[in-house]
Simulated scan of single mutants.
Amino acid sequence: MRRTAARIPGTTALLALLTATALTAPCPGAAAATATALTRTAAGAERLAVVSEAVLNAEVDGTAWYVDRVGGRVVVTADSTVSPAALAELVRAVGPDAPALTVQRVPGRFTPLLAAGDAVYGGRYRCSLGFNVADGGAHYFLTAGHCGNVAATWYADGAHRTAIGPTLASTFPGHDYALVRYDNEALDHPGGFTSAPDAYVGEAVTRTGSTSGTHTGTVTGLDATVRYTGGGTVRGLIQTDVCAEPGDSGGPLYEGDKALGLTSGGSGDCTTGGTTFFQPVNAALAAYDVSVY
């Protein structure tokens, strides 16, 4: 099974260096100010964690949220199924910390992007191959967990004539990743990815899926939690403004030769745009002890 992806070179790094010297005595006033700032930072992070947990406990389907530590806020995105009353109840659940919320609305419904069509087929469903991975001499591919949950065996065609192999493991909800083994030696399984780092806010990314093809966009949030309408809650997701459509589930999110995520779900389409969430691929690699190549 052959997959090619456009390459966009790029990398990012964050370096923090703290130094001290015995030759220069620290200024007591500066030290006190630093300690106060650190205390406020810690208190702010704790407050945002409490707000995020309150949003989770409100249990409003069709919402997604992440902590913006730089802006000091919890950003909540609500799809079209969330009524004004439900949104007001969510705000009330946060209580006196409600000013730390930023609420935005998007059209459509937050759902896992599962559909029938082409690409990789299991049962009566179609999903998208994510990344080919390996463990020693054995080869596998990653896809979305909500895809792995519905099919024990995957095929390269809708008629189920060309078998790929079985679903070995699948997790959804909570996380959203699955591992499928290549049992058909006649199928090609090329690589092309050299690493699987963490994504970062503002990163220019590309997504490929079996329904809508290849589209680009930007990472808008990290460690997002989404309550899919009727589909469970998933934590730790990458939030983006890249469009996606049903059947794109499991497809890869990447930057150049860096593997970043697996398409989980979202709202909208590639005509009007939308919000899409991705399972970080490094979490799946760690869970299954496999590597991209």
Rank of each mutant, 00 (worst) to 15 (best):
P112Y: 07
A151R: 02
V180A: 00
P28M: 10
D269V: 05
D248V: 06
Y125S: 08
T36E: 11
T214L: 02
A5S: 12
C27E: 15
L17G: 05
Y177K: 02
D61A: 15
Y155Q: 05
K258D: 10
R2N: 13
T39W: 05
T276R: 07
T218N: 08
G174P: 03
G266Y: 02
T276K: 09
G250L: 01
S210P: 01
T220M: 04
H175A: 13
T275N: 11
L101R: 09
V70L: 09
Y228G: 04
N184A: 01
L129H: 02
N184S: 02
I164T: 02
G117K: 04
L114T: 08
V106D: 01
G136S: 05
T11N: 12
V75G: 04
A88G: 14
Q279P: 11
D223P: 02
H160A: 12
A93Q: 15
T12V: 14
A284D: 07
D223S: 10
T167A: 09
T143S: 13
T21M: 11
R181S: 04
S267A: 14
I164Y: 03
P280I: 12
V74A: 06
V94Q: 02
D97V: 10
V219T: 03
A287I: 09
H189T: 01
L114R: 06
V219I: 09
A115H: 05
P166K: 06
V205H: 04
S52L: 06
T218Y: 06
L14P: 00
T63D: 01
R47I: 05
N132F: 00
Y66Q: 07
P166C: 11
A156N: 10
T77H: 02
V150P: 02
V205C: 07
V106G: 01
G72L: 07
G202L: 09
D157L: 09
G165P: 03
E53L: 15
H175I: 09
C147Q: 07
P112E: 08
T36G: 03
T12P: 03
T194D: 14
P190L: 06
D61Y: 10
T206P: 03
T21V: 15
P190I: 03
H160P: 01
E46Y: 11
T272D: 12
C127R: 00
R3I: 04
M1Q: 08
A134C: 05
A45K: 11
E46R: 12
R235Q: 13
A16M: 14
T225Q: 06
T162G: 03
A30S: 14
A178I: 04
Y228F: 14
A13Q: 13
P173N: 07
V290D: 03
L18W: 10
I164H: 01
G202I: 11
R181Q: 10
V150C: 07
A119P: 00
R69G: 08
R161Y: 07
H215R: 05
F193N: 00
L260G: 01
